[in-house]
Structure formats: C-alpha cells, structure tokens
C-alpha cells in the first residue's frame, strides 16, 4: 500500500468547474451543502428560539401588559409587510425555477424583485420604528406607556414596566429579523451579479437554492412574529 503511487483522484472523472476537490460528484456536493444549510437553519431556529422562549414566559406572566402593549403596534403596516415578505419568497422560488428551465436573464430579474421586496419590507419597518420613537415606546430612560384601553386609563407603573419588557422583546426580535434580511439582501445582490453573468443554469444553481432556504427561513420567522407581536392585543380594543 505504501508503495503505490499517489494518484490524482480526479484523473478518471469528468470534472465540473464547480466541483470541489473533496467531493466525488456534483450530487454528493449538492446533498452535502443542502444538509449543511439545513443544519445552519436549525441553529437559526434555536437562536430565535431563545427569544421566543423569553416571549412565551413573559407573555404568560404578564398577559395584560403584553396585550395592551401589542395593541399599540400598527397592524396594517405589519400585515402589509407580511404580504410583501411572502411575495419575496415567491420571487425567490421563481428565480430557482428560472434556473431550472435555463432562463438565465429570468434568474437575475426574479432575484432583483426579491431584493426590491425585501428592501420595501425594511423601509416599512423603519417607518414603524420611527413611530415607536415618537410615541416614547422605546425602552430606556424616556420610555412612557399609557394604555389606550377602556379598562385601564391611568398610568400604572407596574404595567408600564411590564410593557417595557414587551417592547424590549419587540425591538430585539424584529431587529434581529431585520438584520437577517439585510444580510440576505447582501447575498442576493452578489447572486444577482453572478446570475447576470450567466453563472447559473439548470445543471448548477446550488447557491441559489441555499440562499433561497435562508430567505424562506427568515420569512417563516416573520410568519410567527407577526401574530405573536401584532395581533395578540387586537381584540382588546
């Protein structure tokens, strides 16, 4: 064994330009990156999961403060953002579809649409954030919360403190979600350029699929954030 010559492991195989040296075939490479991406998404589930845990616990401890604080969020804007994000997921899968049917320009177009929708989401989000600053609903020294409810009208210090926990969670959860979107948009921008240059086709479009998984995951996080943060106090009106 020791005397056998060092053979080039690729010598006998057709070598695709995108095949990394440690893999034997593109299939193996694709299966590996898919599994790797899903494992990464599992870490993301657990990462946001810590926040959801905190949310569930405090919501159970302080249901009234959470409902009243949730009531101040802008449901039409949040709902519109939900629709926009779902739309961006649609354009993302259509980009992959375009790759599968070898429509190279289509890939770039759909990716651009995804970026545009993602940016719109962030724009609306920043309008909401500004509103929170103006109404002093940002936790910190100037935090002030008077519930707009028929049952509770006066400032209740305890309720105010508990509401600040809701707003802390609101900002951290939506903030981290927005950060994920910004990272996603950055990756999509790179992919758009590469797609425009014709790097992806029906045979090889793995980076599109992986980015798609990430983008859809971010969508799923929002699918849970929207009812938990925005809708929980809707009927308390």
């Amino acid at each position: 064994m020791a005397s056998s010559p060092l053979v080039d492991p690729h010598a006998t195989q057709a070598h695709h330009r995108a095949l990394a040296h440690q893999f034997d075939s593109l299939d193996q490479q694709k299966e590996s990156s898919t599994l790797g991406m899903w494992l990464f998404l599992v870490t993301e589930i657990m990462f946001f999961g810590g926040l959801f845990t905190a949310y569930v616990i405090y919501r159970t401890l302080y249901p009234q403060a959470f409902a009243l604080a949730s009531h101040t969020l802008n449901v039409p804007l949040g709902g519109a953002n939900t629709a926009i994000l779902i739309g961006s997921s649609l354009t993302m899968v259509l980009a992959i579809w375009a790759a599968q049917v070898n429509w190279r320009k289509g890939i770039a177009l759909f990716l651009l649409a995804t970026i545009a929708l993602g940016a719109t989401f962030l724009g609306i989000k920043s309008v909401e954030y500004r509103e929170k600053f103006e109404t002093h609903h940002v936790p910190g020294p100037s935090f002030h919360f008077v519930p707009e409810s028929e049952h509770v009208k006066v400032t209740d210090p305890q309720l105010e403190r508990h509401a600040s926990i809701f707003f802390s969670l609101y900002f951290i959860m939506t903030g981290l979600h927005a950060l994920h979107m910004i990272i996603g948009i950055g990756i999509l921008a790179v992919l758009t350029v590469l797609a425009w240059k014709g790097k992806y086709d029906s045979e090889y479009h793995n980076p599109l699929e992986m980015t798609g998984l990430y983008w859809h995951f971010v969508d799923i996080v929002w699918i849970f954030l929207f009812p938990l943060l925005y809708l929980l106090g809707a009927h308390a009106r």
Binding site: W38, V42, I45, M46, F52
Partner: peptide, 12 residues
C-alpha cells in the same frame, strides 16, 4: 433535520 430543530425548540 428540520423536525429536530422545531422539536428541540419545543423542549426549550
């Protein structure tokens, strides 16, 4: 893998 992620979140 996906199921495991959500299952562990449920445990937490």
């Amino acid at each position: 893998t996906a199921v495991a992620g959500f299952f562990w979140l449920a445990l937490l």
